[in-house]
Design a protein around this nucleic acid. Structure first.
Lengths: 148, 148
DNA sequence: CAGGATCCAGTAGGATACTG
DNA sequence: CAGTATCCTACTGGATCCTG
């Protein structure tokens, strides 16, 4: 482990990114994707249908703008559009315009987007499945400290 | 898949949380953990040492406040403290004060924290390992649209 | 339907100074 | 060392209005 191996140098183009470093592009990328709207948009596009029981099938389906807006409750059109634009720019989703009247726009995960979605989906599921435990911890903490 | 199974109903207490719903506590939890500082603190506590080659060993080690501050470049003491407090409150890390002089404070992942860390670590690694590809996509996007 | 453009309040978060 | 407290700015993000 002392000297760099050939394979390590070959992967150098990737390994040079270190999110721990403030100036590193990967830090900014981490910042971008560490976003609830990103997580929810990716989850929606992954085919994670309405609860209950709708475990992500792994079969991503294209969704229209209004579908996404409806699925992700509470999102403003500004945030939804902004999130979709940035995801499109980064190559995580594709945007397809069908010249019907009125126009139809569908979004779909790319392979790259799918690779991230699998990770982010886990985070979303974690939040849902550990909420109760976290709440218990919070109660304990709040009781131990202030607000007794 | 049409009818709910017994196991599905048994997990009902968890399934009732749906991060797609604006008011749901799990949405707020998702919001909390979808944070770059959370990702970086968890990664640091997971034993993800300085690059290169320091793939997360899975052996979480306790770290002192100043160690974390040094490891996570660019973090302000305010953000670091704030992040650590919220993680402690949620039961993801433990805070241990050793009454030396000056005082020594160490942070360590709990089991719950470890379970989230494994997911978040994947996201951090994803950011680092796909940065180049994303950058290429951005260049293409920017070229196709404005700034030709 | 699918946004673009604007305005504006709220807050995240950096800088700095002080403490047990 | 490991914070707390305060100030202050800049950006986030919601609300609203408008367009192809």
């Amino acid at each position: 482990m002392a000297t760099t191996t050939a394979s390590q140098r070959r992967a150098g183009a990737k390994a040079e990114y270190d999110a721990f470093l403030a100036g590193c592009p990967s830090r900014q990328l981490l910042e971008r994707i560490s976003d609830k709207w990103v997580a929810l948009v990716l989850a929606a596009l992954s085919g994670d249908g309405p609860h209950p029981g709708a475990v992500c099938t792994g079969e991503p389906r294209p969704m229209r703008y209004s579908d996404l807006a409806r699925r992700i409750s509470g999102v403003s059109q500004k945030m939804l559009t902004q999130t979709l634009r940035s995801l499109e720019r980064d190559g995580l989703v594709t945007r397809t315009v069908t010249p019907t009247v009125p126009v139809t726009v569908t979004y779909e995960l790319t392979d790259l987007g799918r690779s991230l979605q699998e990770l982010m989906y886990g985070v979303k599921v974690w939040a849902e499945s550990h909420m109760a435990e976290v709440q218990t911890n919070r109660d304990g903490y709040d009781h131990a400290h202030g607000t007794p």
